[in-house]
Every structure is written in C-alpha cells, then in structure tokens.
Design a protein around this nucleic acid. Structure first.
Lengths: 130, 130
DNA sequence: CTGAATCCTTGGCGATACTG
DNA sequence: CAGTATCGCCAAGGATTCAG
C-alpha cells in the first residue's frame, strides 16, 4: 500500500535534525524535482505529467505525487467524471520552493560542462596512475 | 574498491540526459551537500569533517569526498607527514555551486515548519478517512 | 590519521498485472 | 484515466576489520 506514508516518514528522524536535511531528504529523491519543474508552467493531469517527464513509472509518479502533496508542495483536484480527471497544481509553498530552486537549476545548466570536464580529467589521471 | 568510480558513474546515463539531472544526481546523495556546507568556512581535514557532520561513517565520507573531488567541487591536499594529514577545500567551482545552493538552504530554514505542518495535517486527514 | 576491503541489510525503484 | 497490489532486483549505505 502506498497511501499511509508512515506517520513522519520511515527512518527519517524528521525534526530531531537539521531543517535543511528534513526538507531536502524529501525532495531529493529521483523524481520530486522533475515533477515540481514540470508543474512550473501550470496545472497538469497525471498522464500529462507522465508524458512530460518521460521515463518515470506509474508507480513512482503516483508515489512522488503523494509525497509532494503530503508536504504541501502540490495540490490535487479530482473531477468526479468518467473517465476520471485528476489535476495537479503547485501550491503557494511549492511555488516559493521552486523559486528558491531556480538559482541551482541555472547553475547546473551553466556549469555542467565544467563538471563533466573535471570528471573525465579525473578518470584519465586515475587510469594513468593505475 | 572505491577508487575507480566506474567511468562516468554506474547506470547514470550522464550526458545523454538533462544537465540538471546530471549535476543533481551526483550531489543529491545523502552526504554531498552536508560536506559542501561544512567546507563553506574553509579548509578541513578528514577527521574534522567527520566530527562536523557527526553521523557519517568513514566509508561514506571517504566515498563522498572522492565523488566531490572527481566532479571538481573539492580539492584534496596531502601532507606527506606521519601521521598523514589530508586537507579538503572547496574549489572555485564548488564555491559557486554552494552559492547557487544558498537560496534553497535558507528557504528550507524558513519554511520547514510549514512543511512539517502540512505533513501532520495530511496524516491526520488520512487517519480519519481510514 | 586516512583511508580501503569485505560483508550485509535496507529500501528505492522498475516491471507487470489488476481495478474502479 | 488514474491509480493500487505484488514481486524482485540491486545499488546505497552502515558496521566492522585491515593497512600504510
């Protein structure tokens, strides 16, 4: 079962430790940031999100959305139609988080070449030294 | 063996995909950010880092430092003394990364109470609804 | 002091199948 | 369409031990 999300998260001693870790551990998984960024442009429904991200499984997308909703970053609106229609939107909290994230994202875009360069250089040295 | 850091990272198709993922996947592990933040104040040696972070194993600290060094965020200076003395320092690249990170860190500090509030409210609702 | 080697457990995640 | 249930892999990470 996915739903319950064990009261306060399993093994993560939220609260007893640094706020930064508390927040980052929850959005630092494989898909959370991708979902947040995908929702930057506005409301999307489940399948649209899945298509936007591309290589995410239904299971993980659903689980990630639950987690983001639980933490108050994303709101979920259900239209009782058939077929069902569920829309996901950034909350105000989610939008401010994304704002705080932007500098990091643009840093990554501007500097990933340097990082990749450093990586290859390191590997080359390691290869020579044995 | 830890060293080789399998040329280009195992399973992470670095390069073929989004630069943001490429960078974030590498510093998004359990300890990288903590190490970077710890080095903000200046050079530290291995044991000092371990003490500063507190709950990190020797194994993971060493591994994290290798990864950060490889990506060019941290430089490693070895003093050939006995006992050995190894100092870790942020590179220019590492400092700019940390700079881009600061907004996120302060966001976490300012908003983690709201996140925790949302979490508990969500859990309460979930408990009622069964 | 600064690691590396080894062993082992955990849980994150994917694949698949099923449901309202 | 929007999920949930179940199974299984395997990489992340902790504990411990060994080494220069």
């Amino acid at each position: 079962m996915i739903r319950p999300l064990p009261p306060v998260a399993p093994g993560s001693d939220c609260g007893s430790r640094c706020p930064v870790r508390d927040v980052l551990d929850c959005i630092g998984d494989k898909w959370s940031l991708l979902v947040l960024v995908s929702l930057e442009g506005g409301t999307l429904r489940f399948t649209e999100l899945k298509r936007t991200i591309g290589d995410v499984s239904q299971r993980m997308l659903a689980q990630t959305l639950r987690s983001l909703e639980r933490d108050g970053y994303v709101s979920r609106r259900i239209h009782a139609t058939v077929p069902p229609r569920v829309e996901y939107t950034l909350t105000e909290l989610g939008r401010t988080l994304l704002e705080g994230l932007l500098p990091l994202l643009s840093w990554a875009n501007e500097n990933h070449e340097r990082v990749r360069g450093a990586r290859h250089e390191y590997d080359k040295r390691a290869a020579v030294e044995g």
